[in-house]
Computed example of a mutant assay.
Amino acid sequence: MPSTALRVYVRNPALERIGQVDDYTSLTVMPRYNAIGSFVLEISADSGKANLMAEGNGLIIRTADGTLVDSGPIRTVDWSRSKDDSGAGKLTVGGVSDTEVLARYTCWPAPGSAIGSQADAVYKISATVAETAMRTLVNANAGPGALAARKNPLLTLAANGNRGPTITRQLNQFDSLLAVLTDIANAAGLGFRVVQVESGLQFQVYEPADLSGTARFAFDLGNLTDANYTTTPPTCTRAVVVSGGQSTPRVCKTVDRADPLFPGLLIEQFVDLTSVDTASVDLVAQMDQAAEEALAAGAGQGSLAISPIDIPLLQYGRDYSVGDTVSAKVRDSWMTDVVREVTLSCTAGDGTTVKAAVGSTDGDGTVARIYKYLAQVKKDVGRLKTRKAA
């Protein structure tokens, strides 16, 4: 393998390293910011390492200098052979990052109680730092503090760095743990992931760096292959927040935020807090935060998508990583955005190549934003029907 090739190690279900794969034919790994990453590896079925490629095992992928790229379980092992193949064919191995473990759990309204005692409709986070709230949710629903039947014995939590702003909010019953963590982290400007540390899986929260002054990509610098910048209009400029109305009187308020590109555009969006008791001492904080989240999610956006490549002076993993803010020269202006995902590709004959998606080429497109908005409306209507039926 080339000296710059990615290093691949295989682990068993107990996370014990059982071998190194140094004869793969190709490897693509995609770490993602606040999302589940993935990898695809191809290897000859004749390889002596092929027997290690089994569902339940996992891969640990590192750069040539030993920096962890990602780790995660193998999910698929596909075999294929053509009529012209004189060998035993090839195996194509697919897997996901260890962050996927968070997608297996939901947020119980009373995580310390058995399923038959889930009488509450919501789980409340009261004025706590964002990282602390995230760690509490993971610990109570999947980590060391979870019920024995729900506890993942391999999952631990990194030390609390008390990062992020103070938040106050309520979670609907049995919301996806991964989705809730993503919402909190993105609003707080934090990153999170689950990676293998020694013989366990560790939930980590971190604060991405603003490298827009040093991690700079441009065609005239020789580290940019393509770029595009698009704008999309807002879907919400006025949050109409409604709380109470069931056991307590309704309280309604509106919060406006003019869009800088569309200052005269008024779009109202209903924010459903009717499950919140209006007698709550932190009612104002909850309503304000709900309005802030709705306005932030519905704000007009400028999306910068670039395909940078590694050069000796600026390399992924050493100089920037997923979640960091970088700069790219678009026409005659420098623009900044977050590195959402990185694709590292390696073949037996070549070294490792790197391309990064800065901004979003799909999740923030105009059509995708409209569908996301409609999907949220449908979800809110479904929850409203559920409450009325109850």
Rank of each mutant, 00 (worst) to 15 (best):
N152I: 05
V255T: 13
P144A: 15
L27T: 03
K388V: 13
V284K: 12
Q315F: 02
D85W: 00
A239G: 07
P31G: 09
L147W: 01
A209F: 09
T230R: 13
I115E: 13
A179C: 00
A285E: 15
S333N: 11
L211P: 12
T128I: 15
L155H: 12
G143W: 09
T92K: 14
V194K: 09
V8F: 06
Y105R: 07
A88G: 02
G89N: 07
A148Y: 02
T361L: 11
P249T: 04
E293R: 13
V29E: 03
R216Q: 14
R318H: 10
L181G: 01
F203S: 10
Q204N: 11
L261H: 03
S44G: 14
A127R: 13
N186V: 07
K90H: 11
K385R: 14
L68N: 10
A227P: 01
G112C: 00
D98N: 15
V197Q: 15
L273I: 01
S38I: 05
L295F: 03
P249Q: 07
A159T: 15
K83D: 12
I184E: 02
T4E: 15
T230I: 09
C236D: 11
G300M: 01
N152V: 05
G161W: 00
A179N: 12
A179W: 02
L102S: 10
A127C: 10
L154P: 08
V271M: 06
A64I: 00
S307D: 13
P208A: 12
T132M: 05
L15P: 09
N160W: 04
D210T: 08
L181A: 02
V276K: 08
K378A: 15
C252W: 09
R17H: 08
P111S: 06
V205M: 09
V101N: 07
G222W: 03
L374R: 14
C252P: 00
A127M: 12
G95L: 08
N152E: 14
A305E: 11
Y33C: 04
I267N: 04
V21R: 01
T237E: 06
T128L: 13
G302W: 02
F262C: 04
S243V: 06
N12H: 03
R383F: 12
G264D: 15
E131V: 05
I167G: 02
T343S: 14
L157D: 13
